[in-house]
Design a protein around this nucleic acid. Structure first.
Lengths: 235, 235
DNA sequence: CGTAGCCTTGAAGGTGATCAATGTTTGTGG
DNA sequence: CCACAAACATTGATCACCTTCAAGGCTACG
């Protein structure tokens, strides 16, 4: 079992969570781990299911969402490589997944049994700090989204694009490309509005040359314009 | 200094966070702590300020909110006695408060220096688990709110009342009284809608005898009705 | 006793949802 | 490799819900 993880070890040792750890320690933390390859739109786990694993995004991306009362999906987060998923509920009494995790394109995930968290992970001070840091970042992000929920749809889309473009590693001076391929539906589910509304705004922007989109890859071509829209105050 | 905390010790030793700790240990954790008495509408700290303290709600309640782009306040959480506030950002590099904390009526707060968190609190496994549990609860609650943001205002108010009534300790069979006195404005700021909308819905309910409110104390008199409104699916 | 915070009601208007129809792309199995 | 289904994108028309604006009353408190 441990030998299966050897190649993975090299892949993950540069992730923030493991930055100061040696190979042996990493193998300890991931003991019993298993690499899952997800096809596009395939679920890793679903909202409400018994949560007996947590894990690490290796490649691709996963969309974390929840069903709404109307049968829609409310997207809460886009997880990219290096993100730890579902860890923070592992020390609850009888945990269930608070979200559905769906692959966006072919993606890979290192699935780790729950006990590893409560025993190995929790006894590592550095790791605890990192987990709490990433948790607080997510929390603050959610709160930011909430505080913008009263804004107009164009403003909220602009803010989302800026937020996501900040995730990217490489930054060209003029063109900002989002690191994740996004459908209009995914954007609308993130903002909890209808697809039609998102399309109306974004096709307008496309015509005006503010953004470009090709095969779900969105580029911000007029960064300043998007920024000013995101900052607009009505009244 | 330590002697000042002696009486506080008895007050807090029954809070969930300290349930399995003896007096000495509690005094260790709260060393350097200081009791703050807040008047109604007084701020403990403000969004964006340098965060060098965290702490514990002793009595009363504090409303945690953030400013919105329109100059409104977006209420994120109501903290009641026993809640730990601002702890989860203490191990960030250069922390600022992610919310404003405002007293709702006269309230008391035990303010603890940041270093206590990174040194004492973080080295206590039980405490870490409790912190993570409460953090994940708050996180899930925020996510739940988000997923309901597409629902109608009556439905969202109903859900909020049910959620808050669940916080109460004593449960009469028929009448459910909210543990926190709430203004319509606070409700509207929690749901990020206008006061007028909230008033229109709630005065309707008052007339129909579904709820009663007196001096900001809200009682749910027809629990089943509120429940059915909260579960309504349009279409 | 005046101001500040909260509650209330009404009228008008707009933003975004809903519904419907159609085109495009992607993926799958015969 | 084609046919068909499924997911995604687009556009227009209609309308409800909620915001906005305005005006007034109530209560608490310095």
């Amino acid at each position: 079992m441990l030998h299966d993880l050897e190649p993975i070890c090299n892949e993950i040792k540069n992730f923030t969570f493991f930055k100061d750890l040696n190979k042996e320690k990493i193998l300890m933390l991931c003991k019993g781990g298993q690499v899952i390859v997800s096809k596009h739109r395939e679920n890793l786990f679903k909202f409400g299911e018994k949560a007996d694993h947590f894990g690490l995004v290796l490649s691709g991306a996963y969309r974390l969402s929840r069903p709404t009362p109307h049968g829609e999906e409310s997207v809460l987060y886009f997880s990219t490589p290096g993100d730890v998923i579902a860890a923070f509920i592992m020390n609850r009494p009888d945990p269930v997944y608070p979200v559905t995790a769906t692959a966006m394109g072919t993606s890979r995930f290192l699935k780790i049994p729950r006990v590893m968290y409560t025993t190995q992970w929790m006894s590592n001070m550095n790791l605890i700090m990192e987990i709490q840091k990433s948790l607080s970042t997510r929390m603050i992000q959610l709160q930011t989204h909430k505080s913008f929920s009263g804004s107009s749809i164009p403003q909220r889309i602009a803010l989302l694009l800026l937020e996501l473009s900040g995730k990217k590693t490489y930054q060209s001076l003029t063109i900002h490309e989002l690191p994740i391929p996004l459908t209009r539906k995914e954007i609308s589910d993130t903002l909890d509005v209808t697809v039609e509304s998102v399309i109306r705004v974004m096709s307008q922007w496309s015509k005006q040359g503010i953004i470009t989109s090709n095969d779900h890859i969105i580029q911000i071509t007029d960064f300043e314009k998007i920024k000013s829209i995101s900052e607009a105050v009505k009244g």
